[in-house]
């Protein structure tokens, strides 16, 4: 018996559980990045399964940009309470309020997350940080290891990555350094949705089709709200109600919605299978900044 007898989802689940257990066994203070979005919900679900019937032996961390969808934050808190976990929240707003960070001209706060994240890692003395990143999301992520070393400034050096062999992961590091760990590295968007359907994982409602006030910006549909207001006459003229859902959930100011009729997880599955545009390409303004936008942010310490 071998890989061939395990279905795709069972093989991916087994690999992720092995990775999560390895971190808990070999590193002192792991933490799991948790936003309430689908990838972090999936990662948390796998962590719960990895240690059952015992509780998850590490806390959660969320870097809140202050521009998150309120229903996602409410979902995040309900989930943490239900599983009786400990959640730390690092707030970008606190940094802006006391002048440690300045608002960007374009209003996007995604790149501002790096500093609060690194401060939270240092303050919590975390030496392993689980992230929900997948290699199919983006070109720079496609090159990243499952255990990815960060130096004492939180930086990723793509030219100097450790080779990763068999299923032997190496989380050793010098004091001040830490590892980012990506248990979902080998999952695709389709695998994520198939698994969410199979395991009946609860998600924030905005992953499913609902009606919302939106407007057009740079070919994306942004939700009208306190953090995204039309700036030009053309943007103002485009405001209307649409039936939409979200493929990724990030900042309201830079995450686009997609027109959809998918009301259930099975509808979403059919839609994802038929799509011709990648998840991030469809919905994330921050990745459109340049050909190497993600690589540059990762080098600075972004997840």
């Amino acid at each position: 018996m071998s890989t061939s007898t395990l279905s795709l989802l069972d093989a991916l689940e087994s690999e992720a559980i092995h990775i999560i257990r390895e971190v808990a066994a070999e590193l002192e203070r792991p933490v799991l990045l948790f936003s309430g979005g689908k990838d972090s919900m999936l990662m948390l679900h796998l962590a719960v399964k990895a240690f059952a019937p015992a509780p998850v032996p590490f806390p959660l961390l969320h870097v809140d940009t202050g521009h998150n969808f309120p229903e996602v934050l409410a979902f995040r808190d309900r989930t943490v309470d239900r599983l009786r976990l400990r959640l730390e929240v690092a707030k970008v707003q606190d940094y802006i309020d006391d002048g440690r960070l300045r608002e960007r001209a374009d209003g996007t706060r995604n790149p501002l997350q790096t500093r609060p994240l690194l401060d939270a890692i240092e303050a919590g003395k975390f030496d392993a940080v689980f992230g929900g990143g997948r290699r199919d999301e983006e070109k720079a992520r496609a090159k990243e290891r499952i255990f990815s070393l960060r130096d004492e400034f939180g930086q990723w050096d793509p030219r100097n990555q450790r080779p990763e062999l068999w299923n032997l992961y190496n989380g050793r590091h010098r004091p001040g350094e830490h590892v980012r760990v990506f248990p979902l590295s080998n999952w695709t968007e389709l695998d994520v949705w198939r698994y969410i359907a199979r395991e009946r994982i609860d998600l924030p409602s905005l992953y499913y089709t609902h009606e919302r006030e939106v407007f057009d910006r740079d070919g994306m549909l942004l939700a009208l709200g306190p953090h995204a207001q039309p700036r030009t006459a053309a943007e103002r003229a485009s405001v209307r109600a649409e039936k939409v859902r979200y493929r990724t959930v990030g900042d309201m100011s830079c995450t686009g919605a997609v027109r959809s009729i998918a009301l259930t997880v099975d509808d979403v599955l059919a839609e994802v299978a038929a799509t011709r545009i990648t998840e991030r390409g469809a919905t994330r303004a921050d990745d459109r900044m340049s050909e190497a936008a993600m690589e540059d942010r990762k080098k600075e310490g972004y997840f």
Partner: peptide
């Protein structure tokens, strides 16, 4: 032909 191939999830296997 926009539909990506999606097999029955129970029988799809993984090859590296």
């Amino acid at each position: 032909e926009p539909i990506r191939a999606v097999g029955p999830v129970e029988t799809t296997t993984l090859l590296r």
